[in-house]
């Protein structure tokens, strides 16, 4: 399950990447809405957001691009928007949900809307076709897990490390225990994200997770895109990476 930030380096490229990832056979694609103050994101994704925003990217344009894609392509995997509540609130929660539905998104991940604050938004979204994906962190205590499961739908986003996004060499040893515990408490699919970049990490998680989210390791390839040649190289590198990860998830 790859993650990319919309509009880096431009929306046309975002659309091409989504098609490329789709033909690599990924299960789901997360589309990040660039935000000026992303406190959960590490330097790679922050920089990607900044590149997109510096070009004057508007929320409306992301919806337009995604709508064109979902209308034109019928074999796309589900697209899920990763978006700060700051942006949702500014657009208006109902309006945002409607626009996301029309664009063809399947769900929303709102990283700064924790379970406690999500009740009202979850109620709004339950009247739509969208899922509200909730996050669980390594620091989440038991009593919070219960609350979060109550408002989650779609799948559960399990944050692998206490910290920000960004590729890491190792995953914490407690992760597998936490995933097993969650598995016993919910039927929602479990996706693991933050810090994952390598097929070997996928190997470790394959038996305990239903999906694996890779962000910074993909976004990093867009850092040096300046012209058509560098763009073609980036697309090729992203495709290779996606192929490797898809192969790793299907190994058994």
């Amino acid at each position: 399950m790859p993650y990319i930030a919309a509009g880096d380096p431009d929306l046309a490229t975002t659309a091409e990447i989504i098609k490329e990832l789709s033909s690599a056979g990924v299960d789901l694609i997360e589309v990040g809405f660039p935000y000026s103050d992303p406190i959960a994101d590490g330097p790679v994704i922050q920089a990607s957001y900044t590149r997109a925003l510096d070009k004057g990217l508007k929320v409306e344009q992301i919806f337009e691009t995604v709508q064109k894609l979902t209308t034109a392509e019928d074999s796309l995997p589900p697209l899920v928007a990763m978006v700060s509540f700051a942006i949702i609130f500014r657009v208006g929660p109902e309006a945002f949900i409607k626009k996301a539905e029309v664009a063809g998104f399947s769900g929303l991940i709102v990283p700064d809307l924790p379970g406690d604050e999500a009740e009202e938004f979850a109620a709004l979204i339950s009247g739509s076709s969208l899922d509200l994906v909730q996050l669980i962190a390594p620091t989440t205590p038991d009593h919070r897990v219960e609350k979060i499961l109550n408002t989650a739908s779609g799948f559960l986003y399990c944050i692998s490390v206490a910290g920000i996004t960004g590729a890491r060499d190792e995953l914490p040893p407690e992760l597998n225990d936490q995933l097993r515990d969650l598995r016993s408490r919910t039927d929602l699919p479990l996706a693991v994200g933050f810090g994952i970049s390598k097929p070997e990490q996928v190997d470790i998680l394959r038996d305990v997770a239903d999906g694996i989210i890779v962000g910074s390791a993909i976004v990093r390839h867009l850092e040096n895109v300046t012209d058509d040649a560098s763009k073609a190289m980036a697309l090729k590198a992203i495709r290779q990476m996606a192929d490797g990860l898809v192969a790793a998830t299907h190994r058994s």
């Binding site: 509540f85 700064d112 406690d116 669980i136 962190a137 910290g163």
Partner: peptide, 12 residues
Amino acid sequence: GRRFVPETLMHA
């Protein structure tokens, strides 16, 4: 007011 932060910080 309220708390619009990542889940990672909520317990703290």
